[in-house]
Amino acid sequence: MTIPDLPDVAGYSLDGETYTIESDENRDLCESLGVAPDPEGKAHPIYYYIATQVAMGETVAGLCNVCAFDIEDGPMMGGSNPSFNAPLMVGEPYQVRGQIDSIVRKESRKLGIMDIMTYTLHLDRLNGERMCSATNSWIFPRGQKNED
């Protein structure tokens, strides 16, 4: 495996599309977890992740590609840190905004060279009010130095 230079991606825009949590989909998701959908229209809070990820304007494969990483080489989620200003609601359109915050290269005994990419995504109401933000990190294993 050839290890590319650390890509210069900090600041890359992830301003995406609007995303609406559909009632039927929320119900299916809740039922798959064995929980009842909220009768007052609150969506399952995991939609912080689903909505931002689906509507950030890049697929996971595309995001990997931006970072010069082939999704077939096995990216790994390192972490996901949401914060909520209010519950997410079914039926309300949210605008996804965000950017890549940083990418750093590290070396581990287990994975060899790896890049850790951190990005932050927001869900905003259409009036601009921020409902939640999430900072996620992905790990891109690059292999061992001597594999060239």
């Binding site: 929980v35 809070p45 790994m76 989620m77 390192g78 972490g79 996901s80 840190n81 949401p82 914060s83 909520f84 209010a86 519950p87």
Partner: peptide
């Protein structure tokens, strides 16, 4: 969390996979 605090709402989380 929601089973333990059914009237509550999650404000923030950190998740390390």
């Amino acid at each position: 969390l929601m089973r333990n605090f059914p009237q509550g709402r999650i404000v923030s989380m950190t998740n390390r996979f």
